[in-house]
């Protein structure tokens, strides 16, 4: 474990906490894409199957359980909570997620470290995570309302993977023979997907104004 990866994990955890607080405090999920939340739940389920058969560390196990529980809690709020589910703009959140899931799964079958069920599913989760934010970014473009908390959520979600990129550089130079090409390429793509958002987020922050996306 290094400081970059710990910072990345904490930023990821914080992003989820911010989203949960937004939903719980405002009893609203306006501007939040349920599709992205469901894609992330798929990412966590397919990636953390090793919870059942391999123990890495207490930290690793606890964080996986937290990520799984919070992901499903957010989905429960958006689908089942009587007040919150009325604030979900279903008509705008229409991204065809199959166009993300199927290619990622096919790619995981073609490019992986080992042709085993758990390894293919793990690889699938790596590819899927790179594009899981797309429905959320599309929803923002459509609804234009980037409320502060949702903006912070997306910013931190993008930042965590950027911190992981630094972690991979660090591990490459400090751990002889450490290679994770699949994760490195996918993580780079994932971070690039956020660059446009980062640009407008930082611009709004610099001008100390509410974030607005181009027409």
């Amino acid at each position: 474990m290094n400081i970059f990866r710990l910072a990345g994990d904490m930023t990821h955890l914080l992003s989820i906490i911010v989203l949960l607080l937004k939903i719980q405090a405002t009893k609203s999920c306006a501007g939040v894409s349920l599709k992205t939340q469901e894609l992330y739940a798929v990412v966590f389920v397919t990636r953390y199957l090793d919870l059942f058969y391999s123990f890495i560390s207490l930290y690793n196990t606890v964080m996986k359980i937290i990520f799984l529980l919070t992901a499903f809690t957010i989905i429960w709020y958006m689908r089942k909570h009587k007040v919150v589910c009325q604030t979900y703009d279903k008509e705008q959140d229409t991204f065809r997620v199959l166009f993300l899931i199927v290619p990622c799964f096919v790619l995981a079958l073609l490019v992986n470290h080992e042709m085993s069920v758990t390894e293919v599913l793990w690889t699938f989760s790596i590819y899927l995570e790179a594009v899981a934010i797309l429905p959320q970014l599309v929803l923002l473009q459509r609804t234009k309302n980037v409320d502060n908390l949702t903006g912070n959520y997306i910013f931190m979600l993008g930042s965590y993977r950027a911190l992981y990129l630094v972690n991979w550089v660090y591990r490459y130079f400090t751990e002889l023979g450490y290679r994770q090409w699949i994760v490195w390429v996918s993580g780079t793509v994932q971070t690039c997907v956020y660059l446009d958002f980062f640009y407008y987020y930082v611009q709004a922050w610099r001008n100390n104004e509410r974030m607005k996306l181009p027409g």
């Binding site: 990866r5 964080m63 390894e119 023979g177």
Partner: peptide
Amino acid sequence: KEEVEKHDEL
């Protein structure tokens, strides 16, 4: 092979 075992990241 070593990459498969070392999924030590979240």
